[in-house]
Design a protein around this nucleic acid. Structure first.
Lengths: 159, 159
DNA sequence: CGGAATATGGAAAAATAATCTACCTATTCT
DNA sequence: AGAATAGGTAGATTATTTTTCCATATTCCG
């Protein structure tokens, strides 16, 4: 269970993990040591998975996001494994979900432009057979955050 | 332009931004000071936007991802602003795109379970009028990374 | 109830890392 | 040749993390 202090710490670290522990402590009303211990514990428990640098997509030339909906007719274990492995190899695929409903899989792909998406697409379908692929282009990224809501963490988690 | 060294640095920092500069330097074959200077520059240029802690979604009780496709009939400026503002207020909405094609907007929403999604959905439609809303549930998050591909950053970026 | 065990908070010191400066060298470009 | 760029070393300074030691609650049994 995460108490109010833990959630305050996580709230801060999800926005900026460069702040000194002493500063975080000050913000939440805790001295350095207990604040530091809580952070350690959150890391041990795996609540904090890691700390990473976030880059500006445009500045690394991947300003275009495409959502790719995939349907497959092949549901064998062997195909699935090849599919997963294939997508791991594409750094352009930044998110990959197995879905319920009509669509089997959903990808979020980042590329510099539409031409490059086409190149990616060709490489994808040459690597693995897919029944149906449909691409939807994002015109604008209005919101993107890695900060998860913490309100639900106050309750007991389902097992 | 980002040269090979910059990309190596970014590659490391996208995975783990807690490493000491000296250690990063060692990994890429650069002494501390020039490595440090490059990181400073990448931050000034805004290539590195910020450094954040990533949490385990399940451990903060938001293990369920839902993609929400929204179509609207209202395209006035006033409606748009209210729409954007409304979604900013929902911490469950972690991604929000304006799309081309049939669907106008796409959201990624994180919640603890389907019941909670329903609660979210009701709050959403009570806040703003939407023409059509369609929800697709992710059964499994197979891949999720904040690390952008860096191969395209080697080229000149379009203005 | 008393007291051990546990959890939590705090102060201060020790260890580590970041930051910044100065100066030197090699390479490239004009 | 001279300017500009990039890397290197060394050292001083500051900032931060990590550890140690201690105090205070709170809980849980016998």
């Amino acid at each position: 269970m995460l108490d109010r202090m833990d959630r305050k710490i996580l709230d801060i670290l999800q926005k900026d993990c460069t702040l000194p522990v002493a500063e975080i402590g000050k913000q939440i009303g805790l001295s350095t040591t207990p604040c530091w211990r809580r952070i350690q514990k959150l890391e041990e428990q795996g609540v904090i998975e890691r700390r990473v640098a976030l880059l500006d997509p445009k500045k690394v030339n991947v300003g275009v996001t495409v959502f790719v909906s995939i349907t497959t007719s092949n549901h064998t274990k062997e195909w699935l494994e090849r599919f997963h492995a294939a997508l791991e190899d594409f750094p352009e695929v930044v998110e990959f979900y197995r879905m319920s409903g009509q669509i089997d899989y959903l990808l979020r792909v980042v590329v510099p432009d539409i031409e490059r998406y086409d190149t990616f697409y060709k490489r994808l379908i040459s690597k693995i057979e897919l029944y149906d692929v449909s691409s939807a282009f994002a015109m604008e990224q209005i919101k993107f955050t890695t900060a998860l809501p913490l309100d639900y963490a106050a309750e007991e988690r389902r097992p």
